[in-house]
Nucleic acid binder design. Structure first.
Lengths: 213, 213
DNA sequence: TGTACATCAGTGAACGCGCGTTCACTGATGTAC
DNA sequence: TGTACATCAGTGAACGCGCGTTCACTGATGTAC
């Protein structure tokens, strides 16, 4: 996290100038430290150095702010996965592996976004933009799976939607059980990246995408 | 959920008689309806029909109650998985499949327990009994994986700890992304059971446990 | 079998606290002319 | 270029509310003799 200190420090006068943005950073900071439930409008306002009524100029209520955080999280997530996939270079399997690492890296480095996206109880369907952002992030997994599947002769080509859902579930499972800095993390005799990578390899072998050694 | 109505209905007099138990049921009801954050000591007391000071006779604080719910959840979960595994009958693979179904069934039928176990931010390591209960539940997956692996010739036998962790992560991923009645559930073009079952089959084929068709 | 007493499991009133939300307000900013 | 005015983005005080927690207390229960 790279924003600078408490948002109130550089107040330029009566107007904050960037309150909307600052409130979102406050939410990320509070969620990261106290979990998705440990975030209040009042404390976010304090963090930003404004009165407790000020946030209402920018967000209808607490849920609207969280939904916004989740939406931005999905956008960052999409960018992050897209970058890791890198158009399938140098080759599809290596790029796919990078996507897996990026998934876990995001969950670890941005636990607040990850919480808001998957654990805050935000109904993804309640907000169009949010749902679309979530779909675009998933679409990267889908595209990568498509590419991987396309390398297989048609008569034994696996359904790529199913494959992408499996990869998503496995990644999410590893991330939430073992891959976070949180209190809820389970101990593991290996880095989560290795666990996920091994799981993906076994899975791809099961699909006949990787030859058995 | 089978307990009868609001706990306060059958008060027999000054003493509640079964307050500890009733508070736990209250917690389950509240968590199921409002998520792990939407549970308060005060409301649990109201639900049970006692004064707000009464719960302190039975639990140190809110966290102690949640930890107790989580512990009992793991115990039920263990029983549930154990029953599904059924000693590996009629054969290891069929039993393994039943364990997967039981996993998802538990997450769906007991969302409150599942939340308390995996999403309430309870530090599993902070409480010895809780950790042991969690380990016993996982041990069922471990045992099942051992049995499956034991059927493979030693020279290409997969490490069963890894296998059990993969299965756990995949099951948890499917359950938390698609398998709950919650607001956070994602839409899916098939029942979560099918998705998990297909994933497990692909995975087992990747391990060489199931022959490729 | 009865009684005295210890212990247990509740009561209910009180406290300080922080949250969400509203309100009339005011300082700052932008723009039309 | 200056001025009048509309609009925007804040203030700060106030409100009701529910929570967590403590406290001295009391009704109910169990047990020793």
């Amino acid at each position: 996290m790279s924003w600078s200190g408490k948002g109130g420090d550089e107040r330029r006068g009566y107007h904050h100038g960037n309150l909307r943005e600052t409130l979102i950073q406050a939410a990320l900071d509070l969620i990261a430290r106290k979990g998705p439930g440990g975030f209040t409008f009042a404390e976010a306002a304090r963090w930003a150095g404004v009165s407790s009524a000020a946030p209402y100029r920018h967000f209808r209520d607490r849920d609207a702010l969280i939904a916004d955080v989740a939406r931005r999280g999905f956008e960052l997530f999409e960018t992050c996965l897209e970058k890791a996939w890198n158009g399938g270079r140098p080759d599809a399997l290596a790029a796919f592996e990078q996507v897996g690492r990026a998934y876990l890296g995001f969950a670890r480095d941005e636990p607040a976004y990850y919480s808001a996206m998957f654990e805050a109880g935000v109904a993804v369907d309640s907000d169009l933009e949010l749902r679309q952002a979530a779909e675009r992030a998933f679409a990267v997994l889908r595209k990568a799976s498509d590419t991987i599947c396309a390398g297989v002769p048609a008569e034994r080509r696996p359904p790529s939607l199913m494959m992408s859902l499996h990869i998503w579930a496995l990644s999410h499972g590893v991330a939430s059980l073992f891959g976070r800095g949180d209190a809820g993390r389970r101990a593991l005799p290996m880095p989560p990246e290795e666990l996920l990578e091994a799981g993906v390899w076994v899975y791809l072998r099961g699909l006949g995408i990787i030859a058995r050694e």
